[in-house]
Design a protein around this nucleic acid. Structure first.
Lengths: 183, 183
DNA sequence: TCACTTATTGAACATCTGTTCATTAAAAAT
DNA sequence: ATTTTTAATGAACAGATGTTCAATAAGTGA
């Protein structure tokens, strides 16, 4: 009753093939036909599993987002919800996460890629913020959206600088910004 | 030495054709072949002007961004740079701008569209913020990136709510958020 | 092990893409 | 008004897409 082994193998081969090709060319240049050739998979079979290269990549990114979800749970074991004034840069996990998967986030943040990946990341950060903050504002959804996008904004800027700074430095910048407003 | 009339006409027809088709189907479903058929333009001619449907749309969006640039200059005629504490919701123009071009921003914020449009909007908001704020932070670029993306974040949330609120309400929410941090 | 279920295959098809090139025709320059 | 310039055309091409369908073979379950 579990998943058919053939399905598992096919998806595995497609995944491996994508990773291999990503080392040779940008995501948008990868053709389904070439991917399948490499993976030794019939092109028609590809469409039984994914509708596009982007959907295949989204499958990967889903796993990465899952890792972010778990990373966020870590600092919350100590105390929750966090208050800005007590916020220690060391409890901020997001930038370490991004650095860990830097090669993926270079793609996720690249111009020719669909906005869908941005939304996937945004959704997870939003969920994390919702759990960590009390609903103090009347317009809480907007407040959360503001914060979540602002954090991604730092990540975008970081990417634009080719990830020169360390994750710790980014965390400190975030904390500094958050504190600078409650002076 | 001005632009050849034929070029102007061709681009005009392509623009009109795109607008017409956007009323029938989402951007990503518009085929170059169909667009050219409608515009009575040879398909090869399309490629003399644009490399893709996305590039054609970007051409439109460029004009819209230009309108945003001008709209931002308006409240600055009174006093500059603005300070948060004096910030009046009526001086915030961004949400009126988005509401004005709502049908375009529904596309710009949609999942299957390239991130490039987001960056175009981000760049303009960033430029506007850079002009309106003094460089108080050491990490000023990050601070600006934080603010600019946060504002777009409000717009994204607004779009997700199908633009139910008025532009004034969004402006007030922004001002409220900015003030709530300097209490 | 054998019968069953179903994922994968290969071939074929219409459509769309991106490009080339000689020809035509529209606009600019004189 | 005529020449010159160059944008637009139409045809043709290889390659990629997305889909269908009967045949095959791999995996499941008894």
């Amino acid at each position: 009753m579990s998943v058919d082994l053939r399905v598992v193998k096919t998806r595995e081969r497609l995944h491996e093939s994508l990773i291999a090709l990503l080392k040779e060319m940008p995501l948008e240049k990868i053709k389904i036909s070439v991917l399948c050739q490499r993976a030794q998979i019939n092109r028609g079979t590809f469409y039984l599993h994914y509708e596009s290269i982007d959907a295949l990549f989204a499958d990967f990114f889903e796993q990465i987002i899952a890792d972010l979800r778990e990373a966020y749970l870590e600092p919350l074991r100590t105390k929750s919800p966090l208050k800005i004034k007590e916020l220690d840069p060391k409890t901020v996990r997001i930038f370490h996460h991004i650095k860990k998967y830097e090669s993926f986030y270079r793609i996720v943040f690249s111009k020719n890629v669909p906005l869908a990946y941005y939304y996937m990341l945004l959704e997870q950060i939003t969920l994390n913020l919702q759990q960590n903050t009390k609903a103090t504002h009347v317009d809480n959804d907007y407040f959360i959206a503001y914060q979540a996008n602002a954090i991604i904004g730092l990540a975008l800027q970081w990417a634009q600088r080719d990830f020169q700074e360390t994750a710790e430095e980014l965390s400190e910048i975030l904390v500094k910004i958050l504190r600078s407003k409650s002076e």
